[in-house]
């Protein structure tokens, strides 16, 4: 008789717990299906409904985290950060906390607030409870440096994971392709047009050199013929103008070329690289 009583009481409790929970489970399943179908707006609605009716806060972490991901997919980064922060408050273990923080880092990388991403990653790096995540933290540091256009530092981070890391090698190759803006300016400082030639703009470099030779020659001959006023005017309004133009062009071409190289690298990473991306 006692065993019958116990069984009945257990069933009674089971009904108490399982019945309402199933409703919320179904709600979560529905929201997840919408997320998989890329219906992010509807998925957020259903997840918010789940949060509203989940009086025990059992789904708080899962729902808030998934809302954050939906907002991230819709490029609503500020909303995504807000919901990852809520998920972190509701997190019940280290893995969940880590997941929220990494998602926050990814958002900061995507919206190019890479300084914030790096400071979050440094904070994670210092916490002993995340000692087992060092490789992953270095990986995301590498990505943060990629998005801040510091390919040498990105390579260092990836090489810490392994010497032959694929992204490390890629970052090195990009860093090698890039032009030194200072070198371009120094070249043009000594030989007008040389900076442009260094960045591959041969025609512009040769024209610049030609103009400088012409106005330099005119200036010098004017001074030699004691035509001081003409010499000053040609030097001031023609020679100096073309000389400065050459320096400015060298700097501009180097910056433009570097931007082109970086953008092509990011396009390659977006379309070809198969590993995890922000």
């Amino acid at each position: 008789m006692n065993s019958v009583n116990s069984t009945l009481i257990i069933i009674l409790f089971a009904v108490t717990i399982i019945h309402p929970q199933n409703q919320l489970d179904e709600q979560l399943t529905k929201a997840e299906a919408l997320y998989r179908n890329e219906e992010y707006f509807n998925s957020i609605t259903e997840l918010k409904r789940l949060i509203f009716f989940d009086s025990s806060k059992r789904y708080s972490y899962t729902a808030n985290e998934l809302i954050g991901e939906c907002y991230e997919k819709g490029a609503k980064f500020t909303d995504a950060l807000n919901y990852f922060a809520r998920a972190e408050i509701a997190a019940t273990n280290t893995d969940e906390i880590y997941n929220c923080r990494i998602n926050t880092v990814k958002i900061n990388i995507l919206r190019r607030t890479t300084g914030r991403a790096l400071s979050l990653l440094n904070a994670l790096d210092k916490e002993p409870r995340f000692n087992g995540k060092k490789e992953e933290i270095n990986y995301w540091k590498g990505w943060a440096y990629i998005f801040s256009d510091e390919w040498d530092k990105a390579s260092d981070q990836f090489r810490r994971i392994s010497k032959q890391n694929e992204l490390g090698r890629f970052c090195d190759s990009i860093d090698n392709q890039k032009y030194s803006v200072t070198e371009a300016k120094i070249l043009s400082f000594f030989i007008p047009g040389a900076g442009q030639i260094y960045t591959g703009n041969y025609l512009s470099g040769i024209l610049s050199l030609g103009w400088n030779i012409l106005w330099g020659y005119t200036t010098i001959t004017a001074f030699q013929a004691n035509r001081i006023f003409d010499g000053i005017m040609v030097a001031e309004f023609l020679w100096l103008r073309f000389y400065n133009g050459s320096n400015q062009n060298a700097e501009k071409f180097a910056i433009d070329k570097n931007l082109e190289i970086s953008n092509n690298a990011l396009i390659y990473l977006q379309n070809v690289y198969k590993g995890e991306k922000p």
């Binding site: 009674l12 009904v15 019945h19 309402p20 709600q27 409904r49």
Partner: peptide, 16 residues
């Protein structure tokens, strides 16, 4: 009786 009561009450409470 209790099981039935719970069934009814929960279906009312959590009908989202």
């Amino acid at each position: 009786f209790l099981t039935l009561l719970q069934g009814i009450s929960y279906s009312q409470d959590v009908n989202l």
